[in-house]
C-alpha cells in the first residue's frame, strides 16, 4: 500500500488519497462532509475530476454500491467570472 501514499485525487486543492481515507475514517460518511472538511470539489473545477474518484473510494469503504452515494451540489456560476465582467453586465442592462 506504501506506493499509494501520494496519489493526488483533487488537483485544485492538492488533496491526496490518504487524506481522503483519513477523513472517511474520522466519520465523514458522505461526499458533502468530505468536501467541506478537505475543500476537494470547492476549487475551480467544482469536483469534476475528484468527486467520481472519492465517490468510488467512499462506496468501497462503506461497502455499498456507487449509486447509493449522493453527489454534492455544484455551485453557480460554474465558470469562474471576473468581477469586472459582472459589472459590465450590470451596466449593459441599463
Amino acid at each position: 500500500m506504501e506506493e499509494k501514499k501520494d496519489i493526488v485525487i483533487c488537483r485544485c486543492e492538492d488533496i491526496t488519497l490518504d487524506m481522503i481515507r483519513e477523513c472517511i475514517r474520522n466519520g465523514a460518511d458522505n461526499l458533502e462532509e468530505i468536501k467541506r472538511t478537505l475543500r476537494c470539489g470547492m476549487g475551480p473545477c467544482q469536483g469534476t475530476t475528484c468527486m467520481p474518484l472519492i465517490r468510488k473510494e467512499l462506496a468501497r469503504y462503506l461497502g455499498v454500491s456507487i449509486d447509493e452515494i449522493e453527489m454534492p451540489t455544484k455551485r453557480p456560476p460554474l465558470l469562474v467570472t471576473k468581477f469586472e465582467t459582472i459589472l459590465e453586465g450590470v451596466e449593459g442592462e441599463e
Binding site: P76, V80, T81, F83, L87, V90
Partner: peptide, 19 residues
C-alpha cells in the same frame, strides 16, 4: 459585486468561483 467594488475598488480584479 456592485456594492463591494464601491468600498474596495481593488475587488474589480477578483474572480468569483462559487456562490
Amino acid at each position: 459585486v456592485g456594492q463591494a467594488v464601491q468600498i474596495l475598488p481593488i475587488f474589480k480584479r477578483l474572480r468569483v468561483v462559487r456562490q
